[in-house]
Simulated scan of single mutants.
Amino acid sequence: MTDIPGVILAGGLSSRMGGGDKGLRALHGRSLLGRVIDRMAPQVGEIALNANGDPARFAEYGLPVIPDSVAGYPGPLAGVLAGLDWAAGRGAEAIVTAAADTPFFPRDLVRGLQAAASADGVSLALAATPDPARGLVRHPTFGLWPVALREDLRAALDAGVRKVVQWTDRHGAATAVFATEPYDPFFNVNTPADMDRAEALLTEGAG
């Protein structure tokens, strides 16, 4: 565990799940969000949840809920910025983010991101996995983000930047590579079929 704050990104519209908060849907007797919190908690200090709308629906988790500061659901970069603003107010130097719909992400996510950033002499890193056909596949909602770049990110969002890697490449982000065996740790639940697959993975012992 480190003292770095963690931010769980749940600011999307969940349109492929029919809307609503997919993080609140039950997966094997525990909500998706609850499973993500359980996975992140041992790796970080404080945890905040980036989500829009009425924060009361997340009251049972006891986390600060921070909405996007950019209107119109512009994507995960807005959630990262909200997290950086929150962390800056607490005197933190960086945050680590994870998606609220990815219940199997690595238990050494934070350590891997920090090691990759340190090896490259940078303060920004994204997670990635190897793919035989495509090479390294980055997972841009899983990253290490320095608070020092928050105003640059704010300006980029104001200028219309929406794609995460468009901004991170500009700053020479490091890549932290994680194994995909025995299952892809970044498998995310977007559809009812994905929920069935996640249930199957848990039955098979994933986690």
Score class of each variant (00 low, 15 high):
residue 2 T to F: 05
residue 3 D to H: 11
residue 8 I to W: 02
residue 11 G to F: 05
residue 11 G to Q: 02
residue 12 G to F: 01
residue 12 G to C: 07
residue 15 S to M: 10
residue 17 M to V: 03
residue 17 M to C: 11
residue 19 G to I: 04
residue 20 G to F: 11
residue 22 K to C: 13
residue 26 A to H: 05
residue 27 L to H: 13
residue 29 G to M: 09
residue 29 G to I: 13
residue 29 G to F: 00
residue 32 L to G: 05
residue 38 D to K: 04
residue 46 E to F: 05
residue 47 I to E: 03
residue 49 L to N: 08
residue 49 L to V: 08
residue 52 N to G: 14
residue 52 N to S: 07
residue 52 N to I: 13
residue 54 D to K: 01
residue 54 D to C: 11
residue 55 P to G: 07
residue 57 R to D: 07
residue 58 F to C: 03
residue 59 A to C: 12
residue 60 E to F: 02
residue 60 E to T: 14
residue 61 Y to L: 09
residue 61 Y to E: 02
residue 62 G to Y: 10
residue 65 V to Y: 03
residue 67 P to S: 14
residue 69 S to I: 13
residue 70 V to T: 04
residue 73 Y to F: 14
residue 74 P to M: 08
residue 77 L to M: 09
residue 78 A to R: 07
residue 82 A to I: 02
residue 82 A to L: 12
residue 83 G to E: 03
residue 85 D to S: 10
residue 85 D to R: 15
residue 86 W to T: 08
residue 91 G to S: 14
residue 94 A to I: 02
residue 95 I to P: 01
residue 97 T to W: 08
residue 98 A to Q: 07
residue 99 A to R: 00
residue 100 A to Y: 00
residue 100 A to E: 12
residue 101 D to V: 01
residue 103 P to S: 05
residue 109 L to A: 06
residue 110 V to L: 09
residue 111 R to W: 09
residue 112 G to F: 00
residue 112 G to Q: 01
residue 114 Q to H: 05
residue 115 A to M: 14
residue 117 A to T: 06
residue 120 D to F: 06
residue 120 D to I: 01
residue 121 G to D: 09
residue 122 V to F: 09
residue 122 V to D: 04
residue 124 L to K: 00
residue 128 A to I: 06
residue 130 P to L: 04
residue 131 D to W: 04
residue 132 P to D: 04
residue 132 P to E: 05
residue 134 R to N: 07
residue 135 G to T: 06
residue 135 G to C: 06
residue 136 L to P: 11
residue 138 R to H: 06
residue 139 H to I: 03
residue 140 P to C: 09
residue 140 P to T: 00
residue 141 T to L: 08
residue 141 T to S: 03
residue 142 F to S: 00
residue 145 W to M: 04
residue 148 A to L: 14
residue 148 A to T: 12
residue 151 E to Q: 14
residue 154 R to W: 00
residue 154 R to S: 07
residue 155 A to S: 12
residue 155 A to D: 12
residue 155 A to E: 15
residue 157 L to A: 10
residue 157 L to V: 06
residue 161 V to W: 06
residue 162 R to P: 08
residue 163 K to F: 15
residue 166 Q to Y: 06
residue 167 W to K: 00
residue 168 T to M: 10
residue 170 R to G: 14
residue 175 T to N: 01
residue 176 A to L: 07
residue 177 V to R: 05
residue 182 P to K: 03
residue 183 Y to Q: 11
residue 184 D to E: 15
residue 184 D to Q: 12
residue 186 F to R: 02
residue 187 F to A: 12
residue 188 N to M: 05
residue 189 V to C: 00
residue 190 N to M: 10
residue 191 T to Y: 07
residue 193 A to T: 08
residue 194 D to L: 03
residue 196 D to F: 00
residue 197 R to G: 11
residue 201 L to F: 13
residue 202 L to Y: 11
residue 204 E to D: 15
